[in-house]
């Protein structure tokens, strides 16, 4: 997906920054931004590059590091920590075989932290790409990973 094609679909107004970022990151295979891309977006919207960089740095769903196909984001905020009775972090690290901030060799999974997902009522919760999974247990977690793998093998 070429950035210029994504940009073409949005008005040249700064309020479209986040929508553009979300759309392009989703389309891009590595789900991350490179410096020249952020510069191009800044030029398109006529806003400072530092501003774009700041927005990308603020929101945990954006990344400047290449990522896998399935991005597992673990909520780091209080309710999720309090309601976690099976050590979600260690479990997911074990299941995926990677640490937070890493991507599996096959490029399938990336593990990251995120700020509150807004699903404290179903804590502990994680996000996998666009989908939130709440009220997690160890089995549920295993099932989520298995489902991803199944999709790949299908």
């Amino acid at each position: 997906m070429i950035l210029a094609e994504v940009l073409k679909r949005f008005p040249k107004k700064k309020e479209y920054l986040i929508e553009i970022l979300l759309e392009y990151q989703k389309q891009k295979e590595t789900h991350h931004f490179e410096e020249h891309e952020l510069k191009e977006i800044a030029n398109y919207l006529n806003i400072p590059e530092s501003r774009v960089c700041s927005v990308v740095g603020f929101y945990t769903f954006f990344s400047t590091e290449p990522r896998g196909k399935y991005i597992f984001q673990i909520c780091r905020d209080l309710p999720c920590q309090l309601n976690d009775n099976f050590d979600l972090l260690s479990s997911i690290q074990m299941i995926l075989g990677i640490k937070v901030g890493e991507t599996t060799q096959d490029g399938l999974f990336t593990l990251e932290y995120t700020s509150c997902l807004g699903h404290c009522d179903k804590s502990p919760a994680i996000r996998v790409n666009d989908k939130i999974h709440g009220s997690l247990s160890l089995n549920k977690l295993k099932a989520i990973v298995a489902e991803c793998k199944e999709k790949e093998n299908a």
Binding site: P48, E49, S50, R51, C53, S54, G57, F58, S115
Partner: peptide
């Protein structure tokens, strides 16, 4: 000039 910004979170 907009050289400086807050980069990162929290």
């Amino acid at each position: 000039v907009s050289v400086l910004e807050i980069i990162g979170r929290g």
